[in-house]
Simulated assay, not measured.
Amino acid sequence: MRSIIRTEQAPAPVGPYNQAIAASGKMLFVAGQIALHPQTGQIVGEGDVTQQTQQVLSNLQAILAEAGASFSDVVKTTVFLADMNDFAAMNTVYATAFGEDSAPARACVEVARLPKDVRVEIDCIAVLPE
């Protein structure tokens, strides 16, 4: 079983993908989110990884909520940074959503370029509550 998850509280996809897919009623695969404001479609915090990470987490939270999940249900994230020098600033904001006691497994990589030249993109996998 496969269900598409969509919410207007997060940016609409900018390509041929969905915000998230719930699989077998148990797993939620959330597409990478960037710092797009859901209503305006504009980048938030141009060049500021702190503001961009806050917006990315807000977008992820909205998609998780639409599927009936929260940050505590996330089991894996991948963080893509345009510059690894932004790691500490991103990590400080990231920690507001994922505390040490419930933080998911995570990979973090520096990439050559991100969509719309943002500083950060994050995707996640969650286990949907029963």
Rank of each mutant, 00 (worst) to 15 (best):
M1G: 02
S3W: 00
I5A: 01
V14F: 09
G15L: 01
Q19H: 05
I21T: 11
K26A: 01
K26W: 00
M27E: 08
L28V: 06
L28M: 06
F29K: 05
V30A: 03
A31F: 01
G32C: 10
G32P: 14
Q33I: 03
H37A: 10
H37E: 11
H37S: 06
T40H: 02
G41N: 04
Q42D: 13
V44E: 08
E46M: 08
G47Y: 02
V49S: 02
T50W: 01
T50L: 04
Q51E: 10
L57I: 10
L57N: 06
L57H: 08
L57T: 05
L57M: 13
S58T: 14
N59R: 05
A62F: 05
L64T: 03
L64P: 05
A65M: 04
G68C: 10
A69Y: 10
S70M: 06
F71G: 05
S72E: 14
S72F: 06
D73V: 07
D73C: 11
V75R: 13
K76R: 15
T77Q: 12
V79P: 02
F80T: 04
A82I: 01
A82R: 14
A82E: 12
A82Q: 12
D83Y: 03
M84V: 13
M84K: 14
M84G: 04
N85P: 01
N85F: 07
D86G: 11
F87S: 07
F87L: 13
A88K: 14
A88S: 15
A88T: 14
A89R: 13
M90W: 08
V93I: 15
T96C: 01
T96V: 01
A97D: 09
A97H: 10
F98L: 12
G99N: 13
E100N: 10
S102H: 14
A105Q: 12
R106A: 14
A107W: 03
C108L: 10
E110G: 15
R113A: 14
R113P: 00
L114T: 12
P115A: 03
R119V: 00
R119E: 13
V120I: 15
I122D: 07
I122T: 15
I125L: 15
I125K: 08
A126Q: 08
V127S: 09
E130S: 14
E130T: 11
